[in-house]
C-alpha cells in the first residue's frame, strides 16, 4: 500500500512541474566509458603540496614532531625571514642559482649537440652513443673524486659536475625523440629538397621537441640534485654551504630552510618547464589536453 502511494506521488512530481523541465535543454547522450582524463580542476595542481604542509603544521603544533628532529614550519619561516633580511639567504641563493643555471646551460648545449650528431649520422652514432651510455652507467658521485683532481675544488668543478648530470637526460630523450620522428616526414623533406640545415631546423628539432622537453624536466631537477652534492664539497657560498655550516652549529631550522629552498627551486623549475611544454606543443592533441 505505502509503496503504491509513494509511487503515485513521485509520478506526480515528474509530470506536474512540466515547465521546469521545459526550460532545461535536453541532454541525452549515449553512455561511453571515459578513458581520457577529465578537464583539469583549477588550482588543483598545488593541493598535494598544501596537504603536505598541513600535515607538517599539524604535527608540529600537536608536538608529534620533535623540533630537534624537524623544526616547525613557523620556525622555518621566521628563520627564513631572518636569513633573508640579513642578506645571507639571497647571497647564497644567487650563487647556487648561478651555478645551476651555468651547469644546465652547458649540459643542455652538450646534450642537444651530441643527440643531433649521434641521431642524424651513423658515424656519429658509432662514435658517440657507446661512450655516452657508459658515462650514463657511472653515477655522477663516483666521478666526483676524478673531477676534483682535474678541475680542483673551485667553481669549474662544480659547473662541470652539474653539466655532466644534465646532459645525460637531455641526450637520451632528445635522441629518442628525433629517432622516433615519423619516417614519412623524412620522405616529405626529401621530396621538398630541403637542405640539411632546414631539415634539422624545420623537421628534426620541432619533431624532437617533445622528447627534449621531457629530458629538460629531468635535467632541471637533476641540476639541482648535482648542486646539492657539489655545494657540500668545500663550498664558500651557496645554499649547500649554508646548510653545511648550520650542521656544524646544530641549527636544524637553517638546514630545513635550505631544504625548503631546494624544494621550492625544484618545484618552480619543473612547473616552468611544464608551462614551456604546454606553450611549445600547442599543436599536439594528446591525453594531456
Amino acid at each position: 500500500m505505502g509503496c503504491a502511494v509513494t509511487a503515485v506521488v513521485q509520478a506526480g512530481r515528474v509530470t506536474a512541474p512540466g515547465r521546469a523541465t521545459a526550460h532545461q535543454a535536453v541532454d541525452v547522450r549515449p553512455r561511453v566509458r571515459r578513458l581520457g582524463l577529465r578537464k583539469p580542476v583549477p588550482l588543483a595542481a598545488g593541493s598535494g603540496v598544501v596537504l603536505l604542509l598541513a600535515v607538517w603544521t599539524a604535527g608540529s603544533a600537536t608536538g608529534l614532531i620533535d623540533p630537534r628532529v624537524l623544526s616547525a614550519p613557523w620556525t622555518v619561516v621566521t628563520t627564513g625571514v631572518d636569513l633573508a633580511v640579513d642578506g645571507r639567504l639571497v647571497e647564497n641563493l644567487a650563487v647556487s642559482l648561478g651555478r645551476a643555471a651555468q651547469g644546465l646551460a652547458w649540459g643542455v648545449l652538450a646534450g642537444v649537440t651530441l643527440a643531433l650528431l649521434s641521431g642524424l649520422s651513423r658515424l656519429g652514432e658509432a662514435l658517440l652513443d657507446g661512450p655516452i651510455q657508459v658515462k650514463r652507467a657511472v653515477p655522477n658521485l663516483a666521478l666526483l673524486p676524478l673531477l676534483i683532481l682535474w678541475f680542483g675544488i673551485g667553481e669549474e668543478m662544480k659547473v662541470v659536475t652539474i653539466a655532466l648530470g644534465v646532459f645525460i637526460p637531455i641526450y637520451i630523450h632528445t635522441h629518442n625523440g628525433l629517432r622516433s620522428i615519423d619516417k614519412r616526414y623524412v620522405e616529405l623533406a626529401e621530396t621538398l629538397r630541403l637542405d640539411r640545415r632546414r631539415f634539422v631546423t624545420r623537421v628534426v628539432l620541432p619533431g624532437a621537441l617533445p622528447g627534449f622537453l621531457l629530458g629538460l624536466r629531468f635535467a632541471v631537477t637533476g641540476s639541482l640534485l648535482a648542486l646539492v652534492v657539489v655545494e657540500q664539497v668545500n663550498g664558500t657560498a651557496g645554499i649547500g654551504y649554508m646548510m653545511e655550516l648550520a650542521r656544524t652549529y646544530g641549527q636544524t631550522e637553517v638546514i630545513v630552510v635550505g631544504l625548503v629552498v631546494y624544494g621550492v627551486l625544484g618545484y618552480t623549475a619543473d612547473q616552468a618547464v611544464r608551462l614551456l611544454q604546454r606553450r611549445a606543443l600547442t599543436w599536439r592533441r594528446t591525453l594531456e589536453d
Binding site: 614519412r184 616526414y185 620522405e187 616529405l188 624545420r202 623537421v203 620541432p206 619533431g207 621537441l209 606543443l281 599543436w283 599536439r284
Partner: peptide
C-alpha cells in the same frame, strides 16, 4: 601523398 603529410608542428 595519400596522407596529406603536413608537419603537425607547423
Amino acid at each position: 601523398f595519400q596522407d596529406s603529410r603536413l608537419l603537425p608542428w607547423a
